[in-house]
Each structure stands twice: as structure tokens, then as C-alpha cells.
Design a binder for these strands. Structure first.
Length: 235
DNA sequence: TTGTGTTTTACGACCTCC
DNA sequence: GGAGGTCGTAAAACACAA
């Protein structure tokens, strides 16, 4: 059977308000399935046993399916017309939920079964939810990427500053060694000794303290500015 | 033409609310 | 208990590359 032609026929039928769907238990695809299954539709009466309905396998014969549809006068799943979809979209845009009266009204206006309208809204809500989740994911990912980038920048800054610190420590060490080698009783000795002592004091206490206990990059203006930036992001 | 991935329509199972 | 919701999934319809 030609599925494409079936589609056109279906849409023509829809356009002329001749629509085979009437109720959930009348002419529709699910009836074919239930007839094959030999069971009643789910959720009616008996205990709630989780049971999947039988469906036609994908590999089944299209010819036989077509025969079933044509002989029985049963049309299979059809797409809604553009006009129907547009109206449904418009209605969904106004309100995502579908109370009974509205469902009947829409179904009447579009020549659809109320069950179809309900199903369409269910599926539309699911698509809307997925889209929202994707948007939320993209937003979080962008934020995460920005944080990772900033982390890399800060780590790079830490490396650079620690190199500068190391160079400064070496310079101080060299200066203090040169001062120690100088004669202590020269005319400029008093100043040199004081400078030497100060340098030693700074070298022995301050750098160790700064480097191990206080992240020295916190003293950097860029760091302070960046913290303001990130604080702003989380407000 | 055909294989394959995506979208659309429909349903069963289960849950919540009144 | 019924109506209507979500969730997961089948299968038809469709798009498109190879």
C-alpha cells in the first residue's frame, strides 16, 4: 500500500470533516492493535497489571497492513493538517492545560476527536518540556564553560606570579650575600647592615608566610575585580 | 532505492486531585 | 472512581544522505 497516498487521502478526509476517529474504542489504529491482542483496552476494570499492548512489528508486511486498513475501511495514523496544527498551536500558546470544555470546543472547531486533541496537547506539553530542559542545559553549560575558562586564567596567573616571586626571592638572596661580603667597619657600613638585616628579615619571614598561608594572588587588583565579577554572576 | 535518523501521533501504565 | 496529568514507547510519516 502506498503510505504517501494514504496520507493525502486522510488529509482530504479531514478537510471534508469525514473523519474515522470517533471515540477511543471505535475506529482507530488502537482498535487494530487490540483486535490483534485480543484484549480489552487497558485500565478498565481489572487489577493494574503492567502490560504492554501488542503492536505490529516494523518488519511486518505492509501489504497485509494495507489490506486490513482498506478492507475494514480503517485509516491508519494520520498527520493533522497544517491548519489544524496551527489552531492547536495557537490554543496551546494561550494555555498549556486543557480542561474538558475547551477540549470539546477545539475538537468541534477542528473536526477532530476530543481524544485526539487531548493527545495532541499531551505530546505538545512533552515537547515543550524537553525544549525547556534543553534551554536550561545550554544555559548551565555556558555558565560552566565560563567558570572553567576563568579557572584556567587564574591558574595561569598563579603560575606567573609565583615565578615573579621566586625571581624576587633570588634577587634578595643575592643582595644579602653581597652585603655580607662587604667590610663591616666602612663609612657606609651602618646603613648596609641595617639594609642587610631588613632584607634577611623580609626574606626569612614574609615570603614564606605570604606564599604558603595567604594566596598572594588575592592581593592582586585583578583578582579582587574578578571576585566582584563572579559575585555579580551569582546574585 | 534504501537505510537510517527524526518527528508526529497514539497508547498503556501509573499518579494525583477532587 | 473518574478525569486528566506525566512518562515511556511503538509505529507511521517524513527527511535525507549514500
Amino acid at each position: 500500500m502506498d503510505h504517501g497516498r494514504l496520507m493525502e487521502e486522510d488529509q482530504m478526509a479531514l478537510g471534508s470533516q469525514v473523519y474515522p476517529y470517533t471515540t477511543r474504542t471505535q475506529t482507530s489504529q488502537c482498535i487494530i492493535v487490540n483486535q490483534i491482542d485480543g484484549s480489552s483496552s487497558g485500565g478498565e476494570g481489572s487489577k493494574p497489571v503492567k502490560r504492554r499492548r501488542k503492536r505490529r512489528s516494523k518488519g511486518s508486511s505492509a501489504t497485509n497492513e494495507g489490506d486490513v486498513a482498506e478492507i475494514g475501511g480503517i485509516l491508519r495514523k494520520r498527520k493533522l493538517t497544517d491548519e489544524q496544527v496551527n489552531m492547536l498551536e495557537y490554543s496551546f500558546g494561550n494555555e498549556h492545560k486543557l480542561e474538558s470544555g475547551r477540549k470539546e470546543k477545539i475538537a468541534g472547531e477542528l473536526g477532530l476527536d476530543p481524544r485526539q486533541v487531548a493527545v495532541w496537547f499531551q505530546n505538545r506539553r512533552a515537547r515543550w518540556k524537553n525544549k525547556k530542559l534543553e534551554e536550561e542545559y545550554a544555559k548551565l553549560k555556558n555558565h560552566h564553560d565560563a567558570v572553567v575558562l576563568r579557572q584556567c586564567q587564574l591558574e595561569s596567573q598563579v603560575l606567573k606570579l609565583s615565578e615573579q616571586l621566586s625571581e624576587a626571592q633570588n634577587e634578595i638572596r643575592k643582595l644579602s650575600e653581597r652585603l655580607e661580603e662587604m667590610p663591616t667597619n666602612s663609612s657606609s657600613s651602618s646603613l648596609s647592615v641595617e639594609a642587610n638585616n631588613d632584607a634577611q628579615f623580609d626574606f626569612e619571614l614574609a615570603p614564606e608566610t605570604n606564599y604558603n598561608n595567604i594566596p598572594f594572588y588575592m592581593l592582586d587588583n585583578n583578582y579582587l575585580q574578578s571576585m566582584e565579577y563572579w559575585d555579580g554572576l551569582y546574585v
